[in-house]
């Protein structure tokens, strides 16, 4: 019996458990794909924007100018992260299907969850690396501008014969606008938001028939998810004691993710303190989101027919 079979065979009984190696292989290929799609040119644009924002030749105070650099930088990072999370995630799977690359991948011993996870991780690694790069560019610029302002402001105040106390206060105000360790937490917050957005998008792309559909729906959910709290408050305010409205608002809250809470980086760059346990909670919440939406995606994808 065995002699009729080819010599170079191996047993067909290899493990069916999830393999980190395969996930990583798909993630790495996704990463390469996105990088070779010239994604990182965006970083160049970011650097230009930052230098422009950092040199706005307007008569604003040092504190304000530094604050503007921070807001423009983090705002751009946030915009990049969630937009990229939606667009890249929405494009990747339909594209694989269209090119029939998906057939060749899934006809290898690859679990569908491995494929989904690999794609998601690939996108997230690109986002994380881009964010870190942007942060480094930003930090350098902010640091240079802070030192710069510190010197000129102190010189101006000294020349004007201001008291040491006042010079000290102004210097402290400028330094307070400079780099802080907490900014890494702000960066992490932006990343968390994009991870949640990407996982919601990946779920949508498993049911959607086109990338465009996925992108539009995902963006709508994103926007509604930011406004959900406002909407609920508004309804409750308008229809006090209306049981139907109350129930509808409750249902709305259950279905629509609350994206707003992931915008807590804005407080950090305004200089508010961060409690570590909140960062952990938000990280846990994000993981919960990613896990659930991957599960939802898998529910659709695991026996999806191509």
């Amino acid at each position: 019996m065995a002699d009729s079979e080819p010599a170079n065979q191996k047993p067909a009984g290899r493990t069916a458990l999830i393999s980190v190696g395969r996930i990583w292989t798909i993630a790495a290929s996704t990463f390469t794909q996105l990088v070779r799609m010239k994604t990182f040119y965006f970083l160049l644009a970011f650097a230009v924007l930052l230098v422009a924002a950092g040199n706005l030749n307007i008569l604003f105070s040092a504190v304000e100018q530094l604050s503007m650099i921070k807001k423009v930088s983090f705002g751009t990072m946030d915009l990049f992260a969630w937009l990229f999370a939606i667009v890249a995630t929405a494009l990747l799977i339909p594209r694989d299907l269209e090119d029939r690359t998906l057939y060749t991948i899934l006809s290898k011993p690859v679990l569908r969850i491995e494929y989904l996870l690999g794609k998601l991780i690939g996108v997230l690694v690109v986002i994380l690396l881009s964010l870190v790069t942007m942060f480094v560019i930003f930090s350098a610029l902010l640091h240079i501008r802070t030192i710069d302002f510190l010197h000129t402001e102190v010189a101006i105040l000294e020349q004007a014969g201001r008291s040491q106390e006042m010079i000290q206060a102004e210097a402290e105000a400028i330094i307070a606008q400079g780099l802080r360790k907490e900014m890494w937490v702000a960066l992490w917050a932006i990343f968390l938001k994009s991870a949640v957005v990407a996982s919601v998008t990946i779920f949508l792309s498993t049911i959607a028939s086109s990338s465009l559909f996925t992108i539009i729906i995902s963006t709508i959910i994103f926007l509604v998810g930011h406004a959900s709290q406002m909407m609920i408050d508004f309804w409750k305010d308008q229809f006090v004691d209306n049981i139907v409205v109350k129930m509808l608002a409750g249902l709305f809250r259950i279905i629509v993710p609350d994206y707003q809470i992931f915008s807590f980086y804005e407080g950090i760059i305004l200089g508010e303190k961060v409690l570590p346990h909140l960062v952990w909670s938000m990280t846990g919440m994000s993981l919960f989101y990613v896990g659930v939406f991957l599960l939802l995606g898998l529910l659709v994808f695991f026996d999806k027919e191509f």
Partner: peptide, 16 residues
């Protein structure tokens, strides 16, 4: 999924 250890597949007009 283990069945696919033994399969090599070439789709029609493949694009990679």
């Amino acid at each position: 999924v283990r069945a696919r250890n033994d399969i090599g597949f070439l789709p029609e007009n493949p694009y990679f």
